[in-house]
């Protein structure tokens, strides 16, 4: 499969202690393991099974995904920003790959 396309929306600046909204989207088939191909064979499961968001190395939010999450998993969640730093987003694929993305935020 081609490398997934990742889109993450984080405000570029915030005031100290502000709670911001984060939106993430990753392109992924999220093959559920329930479907069959045209010969009647079950297509093996291949999903993103875990998503985490860290801020300067501290965990902010995590989601454990099951096959009932739609393809191209989308998340919207919140984060409190105490200081300037970097958000790191990590997606864990069933096939062992991890996909990461980073976004900086400036606290004024």
């Amino acid at each position: 499969m081609a490398a997934p396309r990742i889109r993450v929306k984080v405000p570029s600046s915030a005031s100290a202690g502000e709670v911001i909204t984060i939106k993430t989207l990753i392109s992924h088939e999220m093959e559920s393991g329930q479907r069959k191909d045209k010969d009647g064979n079950t297509i093996p499961r291949e999903i993103i099974n875990n998503f985490t968001c860290e801020f300067n190395g501290t965990k902010v939010f995590e989601c454990q995904l099951d096959p009932a999450i739609s393809s191209n998993p989308y998340f919207e969640f919140y984060a409190k920003v105490p200081e300037s730093g970097t958000f790191k987003f990590t997606w864990q694929d069933d096939n062992g790959e991890t996909y990461t993305e980073e976004k900086d935020i400036e606290v004024s």
């Binding site: 709670v19 911001i20 559920s32 329930q34 801020f55 501290t58 965990k59 902010v60 939010f61 995590e62 989601c63 454990q64 995904l65 099951d66 096959p67 009932a68 999450i69 739609s70 998993p73 989308y74 998340f75 919207e76 969640f77 919140y78 984060a79 409190k80 105490p82």
Partner: peptide, 27 residues
Amino acid sequence: GNPNPEVATFLFTPLSGRAEATTRIRL
């Protein structure tokens, strides 16, 4: 009513600020 009842589990921390999340699921 899904083949498997589990859909997702969200884990929050005090840094989450708000215990709210949105996603899209299959039914």
